[in-house]
């Protein structure tokens, strides 16, 4: 627990989250400082932070519904103010569930709950599902994906039981698309969108894996980039360029300790420059690429 978050990324430690330490490690791996913020500390401390991350896990043990209890905590009042003022905020897995239950995502009507992360729909199974998937960067102005190329394929693991983005508001999807809020979609290793399991591992509408707010500073994503921040974390049988890198690094410890595909979500924070408000145009992120 830190006494000051000045210049640091604050990781909110709700009771029951369990990915806070590896998330801090992944943030530190890009050269940023990170520290844990216990849920009941003084929320004023967060104002000086560089960014805030809600890590994965089971806040309040997912009781009643994943994310809903944490969404009502007082620290979320402070985050609401910070996020609406443009502070970068990332929710990973359970953190994404908290952001959706808080109405920060999609955030078109701030704090109104317009989405749900519902129980997975899968072939021949129910409940929790842990596996590696492929994401396609949809090319938005999101603060957290600036370093990815448009349509870049990113292998990362997922591990959740409730990750299906769904809404009963028929116009919402179109609005989100128009606003450039659909940031990440599940795809095949070649980047094709296929709605069938396991390419779409949870039945999410339009294969959505991550949504940002209109302004691009808040991102809710179900996959875990912190578990894909080193090459050694990538399984041997992953396809595409990352699989090839991993395959070639076998037997070479120092190469295995190189960056993995998920690290750029955190490294994106290092990219300077303002986030354009409600840009809506896809493709802008390209320039921030490698």
């Amino acid at each position: 627990m830190a006494t000051s978050f000045k210049g640091k990324v604050a990781i909110i430690q709700f009771p029951g989250v369990n990915c806070e330490n590896e998330t801090a490690d992944a943030i530190r791996s890009v050269g940023l400082d990170a520290d844990l913020f216990r849920w009941n500390e003084d929320p004023g401390l967060l104002e000086e932070s560089l960014a805030v991350v809600l890590p994965g896990g089971f806040s309040y043990q997912d009781r009643i519904r994943a994310g809903v209890v944490a969404a009502k905590d007082t620290v979320m009042d402070a985050l609401s103010d910070l996020a609406s003022a443009g502070h970068p905020l990332l929710g990973i897995c359970n953190g994404a569930q908290v952001l959706v239950e808080s109405g920060f995502i999609p955030g078109i009507h701030w704090e109104r709950v317009d989405l749900a992360l519902a129980p997975n729909i899968m072939e021949d199974r129910e409940g929790y599902y842990c596996n590696w998937v492929y994401l396609r960067n949809e090319g938005s102005s999101c603060r957290w994906t600036r370093l990815f190329l448009e349509e870049e394929v990113i292998p990362v693991p997922i591990a959740h039981a409730e990750g299906r983005f769904v809404t009963r508001d028929e116009d919402l999807l179109e609005q989100m698309i128009k606003n450039g809020q659909i940031v990440l979609r599940y795809c095949t290793d070649r980047g094709d969108i296929d709605s069938a399991f396991p390419v779409n591992p949870n039945g999410s509408m339009e294969n959505i894996a991550g949504i940002c707010n209109r302004e691009g500073n808040v991102l809710a994503m179900m996959p875990h980039p912190e578990r894909a921040s080193w090459l050694r974390q990538v399984p041997e049988d992953i396809c595409g360029i990352w699989g090839k890198k991993r395959f070639q690094a076998a037997g070479d410890f120092s190469r295995m300790e190189d960056e993995g595909p998920g690290r750029r979500f955190f490294a994106s924070l290092l990219e300077k420059g303002p986030v354009s408000a409600s840009s809506g145009c896809s493709g802008q992120a390209k320039e921030g690429g490698r």
Binding site: Y128, C130, Q233
Partner: peptide
């Protein structure tokens, strides 16, 4: 195995 979280803590190699 996919019912279990094998990835948490980020240490898994195999």
């Amino acid at each position: 195995f996919r019912h279990y979280d094998s990835e948490v803590q980020g240490r898994a190699v195999l």
